[in-house]
Simulated scan of single mutants.
Amino acid sequence: MALEIERKFLVINDKWQDNILSEAILKQGYIANQPNATVRVRITGDSACLNLKSATKGITRSEFEYPIPLEDAEQILARLAEQPFIDKTRYKVRWGGHVWDLDLFAGENSGLIMAEVELSSEDEPFELPPWAGEEVSGDPRYYNASLVKHPYSQW
């Protein structure tokens, strides 16, 4: 079973820009968005994937991800996914021995900037960057699946 262990933080300044490794535009939509599991399709550039995640317990959840044809992903998003989509620019940022995902949200979630770090265990130590503010790992409002139903712009 694949596990995702991650911690999420709000971003409080732009000092992360000094350590960018890569940048990608992401568009994702949810096909199933239930309390116990989500199913989403994500398009990143010219590739796409189908992703299944269990409910989060602490900072850990089961995650399964499979590549799918780009044309299929586009049709699934157009015909089956909840609206609004999650649109964001994802930056890979190196800090303290880890590569962080830093997401600048657009559309209905514009103004929200979050950083997350994936860990190999819940107690793995990591260095908190100077651009990381409040931890929101346990706050369901910040889950992408929640941002579809309750966009940041409506808080």
Rank of each mutant, 00 (worst) to 15 (best):
I5Q: 15
E6H: 13
R7L: 07
K8R: 14
F9H: 12
L10P: 03
L10I: 12
Q17F: 02
D18W: 02
I20N: 10
L21T: 08
L21G: 08
S22V: 05
L26P: 08
K27M: 11
Q28A: 07
A32P: 12
R42Q: 10
G45S: 10
L50G: 04
S54P: 10
I59C: 13
R61E: 12
F64Y: 13
I68Q: 01
I68L: 09
P69M: 07
L70K: 09
E74Q: 15
Q75V: 02
I76W: 04
E82C: 09
Q83P: 01
F85S: 07
F85M: 11
R90Y: 05
R94K: 14
G97I: 00
H98L: 05
D103H: 06
L104S: 03
G107V: 13
N109W: 05
S110L: 09
S110N: 03
G111P: 04
G111L: 09
L112C: 03
M114F: 00
A115I: 09
D123E: 15
D123K: 13
P125F: 05
F126W: 15
W131P: 04
G133P: 13
G133V: 07
E134W: 07
V136T: 10
P140V: 10
P140I: 11
Y142S: 10
S146F: 02
Y152A: 03
Y152F: 12
Q154G: 04
Q154L: 09
W155G: 11
W155E: 11
